Amino acid sequence: VVKTSMKNELEAAKRKSSPRDLFHTPILRKRICVLSLMRYLFTVSIFGLSLHLQHLSTNIILLQFLSSALGILFSVIGHFVLNHMGRRITQLVLMSLRGIFMLTAVFVPQEMQTLRIIMATLAAALSSLCMCVSNLHINELLPTTLRATGMGVISMFGNSGLFLAPLFMMLAIYSANLPWIFYGGFSILYGFSVFLLPETKNQPLPDSIHDVGNDWKESRQAKEEDSIIKVTRF
């Protein structure tokens, strides 16, 4: 078992990786597709909010100051929450709350300006923390040999949201709240789509494509080999 494992690792180290390898196995192909979609949803939502904060508050300077200060506090608290709740639950909670805060700020009447500022501040402050958690989860899902390439492919699809996010504001000609429904809805949809991916808390990082697994049969064989190693005394 040890010789077989060492042989597989040696062959993986000698093999030159390429972007095509990201779609070589079913499991890795699924992860790339899901992560690319999630990054697109997140990019549209986060830049849609950042570029149009003036629609949520008349005092944009105050809103930027409060969201930046609160973002620092959330980053400190997020470290402990992430280690306690795991990657998937943390993203579900943060992205769902962010979407709810955004939608609440939009549908609150203009007369309740204080509540609108509070909701918009919380939504903007959670953006940086959500980005950190998202990047951490992506890095832990991709194998080491293809991590940089995978991040490049995912970012390429995600960056399409950079120029599409402002275009959603054109929907305001039909309804003033319609663009914000998309921005907040994409954030909530991102939170639930994370369950299409495995949890990586306290799990070993995959070093190669072989560690991710080619199919169900190979994954089962790898688990059996791991169990043999654990029970064998050397």
Score class of each variant (00 low, 15 high):
S155G: 10
L167T: 05
G158F: 07
F195G: 00
A176Q: 14
L164G: 03
P198Q: 06
L164Y: 13
W180K: 07
G158Y: 06
L189V: 10
L197N: 04
F168W: 14
T200R: 03
F163T: 03
F157W: 08
L178E: 03
V194R: 07
S193D: 08
F168V: 15
P166K: 05
F168E: 01
F195V: 01
M169Y: 09
I154L: 00
N159K: 13
F195N: 00
L196A: 15
F163D: 06
S160D: 10
L167H: 05
E199N: 03
Y183A: 04
I181M: 15
N159S: 13
F168C: 11
M170T: 12
I181T: 09
Y174F: 15
P179R: 00
L189D: 00
F195S: 03
F157K: 04
L196H: 09
A165D: 04
L178R: 10
F168T: 10
M169S: 07
N159F: 11
F192K: 03
W180H: 10
W180L: 11
G184L: 07
L178C: 03
E199R: 01
T200I: 01
L178V: 04
S175Y: 10
W180Q: 04
S160Q: 14
F182I: 12
I173P: 02
S193V: 07
I188Q: 07
G161R: 02
G185P: 04
M170P: 01
G158S: 03
I173G: 06
P198W: 05
I154P: 05
S187N: 08
I154V: 12
G184S: 09
G191N: 07
L171D: 02
S193K: 06
Y190Q: 05
G191C: 13
F195I: 02
L178W: 08
I181N: 00
F186S: 00
A176D: 13
Y190V: 02
I154Y: 02
F168N: 04
L197M: 11
S193L: 15
Y190L: 11
L162S: 01
L162M: 11
L167G: 02
G184D: 02
L197D: 02
S193G: 13
A176P: 11
L197G: 02
L178M: 13
S175W: 12
G191V: 06
L171I: 10
L167V: 14
F192A: 12
V194N: 07
L171E: 00
F186L: 10
L196I: 08
W180C: 06
A172P: 02
M156L: 15
G185F: 10
I188N: 05
F192V: 13
L162Y: 09
V194E: 01
S160W: 12
F195A: 02
Y174W: 15
G158T: 04
P179E: 04
P198S: 09
V194C: 11
I188M: 14
M169Q: 09
S175K: 08
F157A: 09
F168R: 07
L197A: 03
E199F: 07
G184F: 09
L164M: 15
F195K: 03
P179Y: 00
I181E: 05
S175V: 05
F168M: 15
L164F: 15
